Amino acid sequence: MCFLQTQITHTELLDLKPLPLSALGNKAYEDLYRFTHFNPIQTQAFHVLYHTETNVLLGAPTGSGKTISAELAMLHLFNTQPDMKVVYIAPLKAIVRERMNDWRHRLVTQLGKKMVEMTGDFTPDMVALLSADIIISTPEKWDGISRSWHSRSYVMKVGLMILDEIHLLGADRGPILEVIVSRMRYISSQTERSIRFVGLSTALANAR
């Protein structure tokens, strides 16, 4: 596992005692999960994800629990800035749909959060976007939407951006991801509202 925060280049997976769900300190959050303890990666990353505003780059194999790790950062935003929005960027429509189906049954149904999908096939109306707590989008769609950020107040209310499969920075669609991050950082500087970035990857050969 590679786990980066700020300028740390690599964090070895430590042999830690599994952290119980009770560490969330919130019964509603505990009820989101069917397990009793977080796995080693989630346990090690728990504090920085759930209790800080630190940008995180988390690299681990497929099926190792990266999505739940990202959810910890989402829960932190819900705790500290409930008026701000989460934007989850996924490179494929299939991943967008998978997240929609999963979170609809948990974050929406159990926590009462509002969620919208933005892909080439679907663009929600302004009312839905303004009221959404979670926006799930493809890179291309968010790139197009965020270009007109001055006239779209919901873009200026993003507090957390999660970029899945961020190793695609090195592929053909990499420039779009770079533009998205750069633009959101610029928006943050103009609005003086901090935006936290969490990147998820299965490979980090050139992590820095």
Results as ranks from 00 to 15, higher is better:
C2I: 10
C2P: 14
L4T: 14
Q5I: 12
Q7W: 04
Q7Y: 05
H10W: 12
E12C: 08
L13D: 04
L13N: 03
L13T: 12
K17G: 06
K17Q: 14
P20M: 12
A23R: 09
A23S: 13
L24M: 13
L24A: 09
N26I: 13
A28P: 04
A28V: 06
A28T: 14
Y29A: 15
D31Q: 13
L32A: 07
R34C: 08
F35N: 00
F38W: 01
N39I: 00
I41V: 02
T43S: 05
A45M: 05
H47C: 09
Y50C: 13
H51E: 14
H51Q: 15
E53T: 09
E53M: 02
T54I: 09
T54R: 09
T54V: 13
V56H: 04
S64K: 00
S64P: 00
K66S: 00
I68C: 00
L72E: 05
M74Q: 13
L75V: 10
H76K: 13
N79K: 15
T80V: 15
T80P: 08
K85Y: 12
V86L: 14
L92A: 12
L92W: 10
A94M: 10
R97C: 03
R97M: 14
R97F: 12
M100Q: 11
W103T: 06
R104K: 13
H105P: 02
R106V: 06
V108A: 05
T109A: 11
Q110S: 07
K113I: 02
M115V: 03
E117V: 03
M118R: 10
M118C: 10
G120D: 02
T123K: 03
P124S: 07
P124C: 03
A128M: 11
A128F: 05
A128I: 05
L130D: 07
L130W: 02
I134Y: 06
I136F: 05
I136Q: 13
T138P: 14
P139T: 15
K141E: 04
K141D: 02
K141R: 11
W142Y: 11
D143E: 09
G144Q: 05
R147D: 05
S148F: 12
S151Q: 14
R152A: 04
S153E: 05
Y154K: 06
V155H: 04
G159T: 02
L160H: 01
L160I: 02
D172R: 11
G174E: 07
P175T: 01
L177V: 08
E178F: 02
V181D: 03
I187Q: 02
Q190L: 05
T191V: 11
R193V: 07
S194E: 07
V198G: 10
T202P: 14
L204K: 12
N206W: 10
